[in-house]
Design a protein around this nucleic acid. Structure first.
Lengths: 218, 218
DNA sequence: TCTCTCCATATTATAGATAAATTTGTGATT
DNA sequence: AATCACAAATTTATCTATAATATGGAGAGA
C-alpha cells in the first residue's frame, strides 16, 4: 500500500469522494457541504476545497460561485457525449500503443477479460473492464491522453453503477476477445473499429431497468 | 465586463496565471511560490492553492506533494500528443456540429479567418485562430468536449508562443478556407479530414527557429 | 397575497501555527 | 587541503482556527 504517505490530504479526500460519487453512494444533485466533509475526515475545510476543485475538473461536481458544490447530474446526453469522447480517444491511444504491444501484454489483457467473466457483481466487472482497457492502452506512452481517458472512464462507470443499464456483461467479453484477436493478428484497424463500437455501447439508449437490483449472474 | 463580480478570487488568479504561462511570461520549469502570488494579488494563499489545483488539471503546472508547483515543461513529444488529441476531439466535435451549422455561423467563421489574415503578431493571429475553431465547433452542443478542446488549445498556444515555430501564418488560412468550403458544400468528411491535418500541423517537427524574434509579416 | 427586512446557515477569505525539505555551514576523514 | 557527511537553520508548503460576506428562508407588515 503506497496510498497513504506521499500524497496530500486533499488528494485523499478527492479520491474518496470520487469513489463515492462514481459508485453512487452520494447521489447526483446532492450538496457537498465542506464543513461536514472536513469533520468526517478530521480535517479543515481548506483541503476539502482543494479536493472540490479537482473533482470539478473531472466533471464529477459542479460549483456555483457562492452557493457551494453539488454532485454533477448526468443526463443520457452526457453519457452519450462521454462515450463518444472515449471512443475517439481510446482509438487514438490504441493506434499509438499497437507498435509497443507485446505478447505478454496481450496475455495480461486476456487475463483481465477472464476476470471479467468470473465477476459476480458490477463493481468487480467494472474493475476488470477498466484493467483491460488500461493494459492495452498504457503502452501508447501518452500520459495526458491516458489521464483524460481515465477521467472519462470514471464518468462512464458512474453511469453503469447507477443501474440504468442492467445488461452489463453479455456483449463486452466478446468485444474484448475480438479486440485481442485483431491485435494478435496485427490488424490494428479492425481492433480499433471494434473498440470504438465497444466503448460507445454503454452510451446506447438502454432499456430502462427499475434499478432496484442489478442482476448479478451470467 | 462581467469578468469581475460573480466569480471567485481563485478563478481570477487561475485565469491570470494561465494567461502568463501560455504567453510565456512565466517560463517553463519556473517555481510558483504561493506566498508571492498571494501577495501580488492582495489575497491569502488559500485561493492561490485552489487556483493551483485548477491549473494542474489543465496540465499547465505540475505539483510535487510537499515541494510546491512548477510550470509544466513541454517537450516536442508533448506537443505532438496534444496535437493528436486535438485532432481526434475536434473532428468529433465538427461531425456533431455540422447538422447545426447555419450560413450565419459559417460567415462568422469566415470573418475570423480574415481577422487572422490581418493579424500582425502571433497573439492576434492565435486569437483569430482560436475564434475560428470555437465558432465552427460550439454548435456541437457537447460542453464537456468543448472544454477539453479549449484546454488542449491553450497547451498548443503555449507551444506557438514559445517561438519554436516561426512560420505560423502561411498554411493555416488556406486550411480554414478549405474547411469552410467543405462545410458550405455539405461535405463534412472532407472538412473533417482537412481539420485533422490542420490541427496536427502545429505538432509537426518544425525547423527550429532561434526564437529570438518571431517574424511578424506575411 | 406580495414584498421587505431580519436572521440563520454555509461558503469564502485571512491570519497564524506546524511540519517538511532544501540549503548552508561545520567538522571529520582521506 | 579538499571532499564527504551530518546537523542546524531558513525557506516553503500545508493545515487549523477564526473572522467576514453572501445567500436563502421565514416572518411581519402593507
Amino acid at each position: 500500500m503506497t496510498t497513504a504517505k506521499d500524497d496530500t490530504i486533499a488528494m485523499r479526500i478527492s479520491r474518496t469522494l470520487a469513489d463515492r460519487i462514481i459508485s453512487g453512494t452520494i447521489a447526483a444533485g446532492a450538496k457537498l457541504r465542506q464543513d461536514h466533509i472536513a469533520e468526517e475526515f478530521g480535517a479543515s475545510h481548506v483541503p476539502v476545497r482543494e479536493a472540490f476543485r479537482r473533482l470539478e475538473a473531472q466533471g464529477l461536481v459542479v460549483s456555483e460561485p457562492r452557493r457551494g458544490v453539488r454532485v454533477a447530474e448526468f443526463s443520457l446526453e452526457d453519457v452519450r457525449e462521454v462515450a463518444e469522447m472515449r471512443a475517439a480517444l481510446e482509438v487514438l491511444a490504441l493506434r499509438n500503443a499497437a507498435p509497443h504491444l507485446t505478447k505478454a501484454i496481450l496475455d495480461q489483457a486476456e487475463d483481465a477479460t477472464k476476470a471479467g467473466d468470473r465477476a459476480g457483481d458490477v463493481q468487480a466487472w467494472e474493475e476488470a473492464n477498466r484493467s483491460f482497457h488500461r493494459i492495452i492502452l498504457t503502452p501508447c506512452r501518452m500520459p495526458r491522453l491516458l489521464k483524460a481517458i481515465d477521467d472519462l472512464h470514471a464518468a462512464s462507470a458512474r453511469f453503469l453503477f447507477s443501474g440504468w443499464r442492467a445488461e452489463w456483461d453479455a456483449p463486452t467479453d466478446r468485444d474484448h476477445r475480438a479486440i485481442l484477436a485483431g491485435l494478435r493478428a496485427g490488424d490494428v484497424e479492425a481492433a480499433a473499429s471494434v473498440l470504438a463500437r465497444h466503448v460507445q455501447w454503454v452510451g446506447q439508449k438502454p432499456r430502462l431497468a427499475p434499478a432496484g437490483k442489478v442482476s448479478a449472474g451470467g
